[in-house]
């Protein structure tokens, strides 16, 4: 299996603040990975280092087999990136920028050009700088999808989109992923989009990659267990084998969120109720900042 994205001991420091802390990560081809984490967890910095847009403080990273910082133009042309802020030149007309892209990208889908106006509702004759924030965002996404890249990287693609545009994006991402050779990484706060699109989930917290697993593994292995508090006190050490993410000990009942329920001895589960967690609760349980919730 080919690796489309790879980092070893990747670090980025700003002064005495560590934004990204020793991240080891490998993304296999064909993966649709959601990158999650609280604000300031280091998601954007990680993506920008992988794309070679910002230097690394330590470690190394590669994109489609090439070193990110010295990415050859041929490799760059096989990757599309949409940043959270608009990076399109504001002085260019929409139609000009579109034609410019057509010449720049070998896989350019000319048949998608008309969608920019019809589906994404971006007026072709406007200058990029005159577009609304939402229009700029839609235009950037439409351009990225029309490049037909092998690897698509989106930083918060849902932000600034209205409901209809978000649905269109989900539909087009589903189409994009129908070729199993294509890969996607997207950072997001919208948990329902994760469930719709992601095959894998990477969770960042305070600069560290705290989880990278298939979505299904997370959904099946993380469980909320409820039991009489007496039972909890007797079997505490058994439950600790499954890594406790969250604990709420009441007078009578105790609720515990377990990271890996398959690691628990069978007898520990016999007198407990076991619940699956909505994804939102799974992520809250995984990040240390969750105490404020």
């Amino acid at each position: 299996m080919k690796t489309v994205l790879q980092s070893n001991g990747l670090e980025r420091r700003f002064g005495d603040k560590t934004a990204v802390d020793r991240v080891d990560w490998q993304l296999p081809q064909g993966t649709a990975c959601a990158l999650l984490g609280p604000n300031g967890a280091g998601k954007s910095t990680l993506l920008r280092m992988l794309l070679g847009l910002t230097p690394v403080s330590a470690g190394e990273c590669r994109l489609l087999g090439a070193s990110s910082w010295t990415l050859p133009p041929e490799t760059r042309a096989r990757v599309a990136f949409v940043a959270e802020q608009n990076l399109l030149p504001s002085w260019m007309r929409v139609s000009e920028l579109m034609h410019f892209h057509r010449r720049l990208y070998p896989n350019w889908r000319q048949d998608r050009e008309k969608e920019i106006q019809t589906l994404w509702e971006v007026p072709l004759e406007s200058k990029v700088g005159q577009l609304s924030k939402g229009q700029q965002r839609r235009f950037a996404l439409a351009l990225a999808l029309a490049q037909d890249p092998e690897l698509l990287i989106l930083d918060e693609p849902g932000s600034g989109l209205d409901v209809a545009a978000r649905r269109l994006l989900l539909k087009q991402l589903a189409d994009f992923l129908s070729d199993p050779n294509r890969s996607l990484v997207f950072s997001t706060h919208i948990v329902t989009d994760v469930e719709r699109i992601a095959s894998h989930v990477a969770v960042m917290d305070q600069g560290t990659l705290v989880a990278f697993e298939p979505l299904e593994t997370l959904q099946e292995q993380i469980r909320r267990l409820r039991m009489p508090t007496e039972l909890w006190k007797q079997n505490k050490s058994q439950f600790e084998q499954g890594e406790i993410l969250k604990l709420d000990v009441g007078d009578l009942a105790t609720t515990v969120v377990i990271r890996n329920v398959t690691k628990l001895p069978q007898e520990a589960l016999s007198a407990t109720e076991s619940f699956s967690l909505p994804l939102e609760d799974i992520f809250l349980a995984m990040v240390r900042g969750s105490e404020r919730a």
Binding site: R167, K171, L173, A174, L177, S178, R196, A198, S199
Partner: peptide, 14 residues
Amino acid sequence: SVRELASQLGINPT
């Protein structure tokens, strides 16, 4: 088809 349904629902084809 897998592709049609994935696109209709806006979800990953897998």
